[in-house]
Write a protein that binds this DNA or RNA. Sequence first.
DNA 1: CCTGAATTGTCTAACCGTTGTCGAGAGTTT
DNA 2: AAACTCTCGACAACGGTTAGACAATTCAGG
Lengths: 316, 316
Amino acid sequence: MTDQEADSSAKRHPIEVVARRTGLSKDLLRAWERRHAAVDPARTDTGRRLYSDDDVERLRLLRQATAGGRNIGSIAGLPEGELSSLVREDLAAGNPSSEPEVDAKALEDRVVDCIDAIEAFDGERLRSILSRAMVQLSPTEFIDDLVAPLMRRMGELWVARQLNPGQEHLASSVVAATLQDVIGILHNPCPEAPEVIVATPAGQKHGIGAMLVAASAAAVGWRVTYLGADLPAEDIAEAARTRGAAAVALSVIYPPDDPDLPGEIVRIWNELPSDVEMVVGGASAPSYSQTIRAIGASLALDLEDLRSFLHRQASA
Amino acid sequence: MTDQEADSSAKRHPIEVVARRTGLSKDLLRAWERRHAAVDPARTDTGRRLYSDDDVERLRLLRQATAGGRNIGSIAGLPEGELSSLVREDLAAGNPSSEPEVDAKALEDRVVDCIDAIEAFDGERLRSILSRAMVQLSPTEFIDDLVAPLMRRMGELWVARQLNPGQEHLASSVVAATLQDVIGILHNPCPEAPEVIVATPAGQKHGIGAMLVAASAAAVGWRVTYLGADLPAEDIAEAARTRGAAAVALSVIYPPDDPDLPGEIVRIWNELPSDVEMVVGGASAPSYSQTIRAIGASLALDLEDLRSFLHRQASA
DNA sequence: CCTGAATTGTCTAACCGTTGTCGAGAGTTT
DNA sequence: AAACTCTCGACAACGGTTAGACAATTCAGG
């Protein structure tokens, strides 16, 4: 991740890759450029387009804005800032309560607020904190900087016995619902966008990590089918086949030493079509790294890792 | 927030966006403009409408006012200030802006559509069917006539082995998220409204029934704290005490013959303050009716039953 | 109470600008 | 040679516009 520093404006991606990453067809990319100058990619000496990461990001925003009901012609010329605020406005549109008070509250404080709400069994306050943050932050920020730290903090409190099962359940269901909303909002309707099946294998009861994975995948343009926790290998594989998925992502949180899990992972792998990739992430994933490597699947140590896996697959 | 250049009177939204944000049909937007000059949007050089944020706000107010029983012709010309005070009045007068319901026929079809989506592992389609229905139907109709029949049908397919665990998980998480949304939308901010704690006792793994209970309670004006499935008695009772709840609702779906459950129910009851009522519902609730009656709790045979229980408690 | 007029949300028909996609023909990369 | 990519032109689908019509309500006045 360090060797990407100033390269976000470096032009290097061919059109094929950009089409996959944005979920826009190649024809459409050319049409938007020709008719509205939506982006201005560099060219090789033979005239082939080379897009930068910034271009990709911009195109993704344009896609979201058009999905939100706007005409490409009237937004193609807008600068990044306006474009992204427009998209966020549209996302927040369902929320009729326009809050005049703008809190630029630090993210750590928001985590604390969430914990407060959870301790008071106040699901409604938790929901409102999260849904406000959801529209104020970018999806990736929301997931990485708020939801993930919150889940981590909850884990700490849980082992310290300062959170009881009721509070944990309450929080989980609210967080899960919020993340489902994120996935729904980000849903990529383009049939060419690759799809990933997200689940936790049998024996793993905690679905919330998989939910984070699902939301992260949606945030980078993938279509996502979230199956949930504790699923037998055959069912995960069947879903992948039915959906024509390009990848399967498994979340493994707890326990780190399930003797049945390696077998379960291998069974999933074996039942998958050969062109479907697999990635395993979550707190306990490294404990099973031997199995994962043995079959040729990938290991994701964190969400950033997961995103780069998805990027690699999307361009492959 | 620095780039709040957003001049609220800048005309920039196409009709599609405005229709989504206000919930008014495009036809209606045009009709109100033509017949009553309710708003005066700008035009592009090719004649397309462009609305400002102010226009959107105004249309929202008009919508609320008409939902409260006013007719558009007599309020379309009013200035902003009068409009908003009018709406406030109507809300204070207890006009819950009831929606007239239209479809009774298509509900069966929608259940079938949902099942189709589930069988295809198409979570996104399921979500879109449900969320469309959510805004078209009243909350109670949505729950009673769509979600509950859907869950029943899923149960049938499950026992007939025509639904696998993956499909069941997928559907559950989407339905749960949708119901959480319903609860969020219905959330009653009035601090005097009675609150109910909803959960399923330890041993009961299926939380979706409790979710239906929670949404139903929210639909009749209660504040709801949804704790989820499989919770120890102490935690349920603690939540009730912490929240100062007026009632506890338990959902009991499966199994119907858990030898530990009666004890669990009694423990909850014993740890509850004496002024907190308790109701038990769900498919298997009648199997435990002896215990329920013995301690003086109520038994709800269906959601209608539950609602009348809540009404009794609210007026008590 | 009934009846005819006004109101209101929706729908159709006809038109046209906008948009996504496709094909043809030529060049480039592997 | 096969697989990409390029430009340019064409085209059908889609959405937005006006104008008019329609059924269902609402309402005033007999």
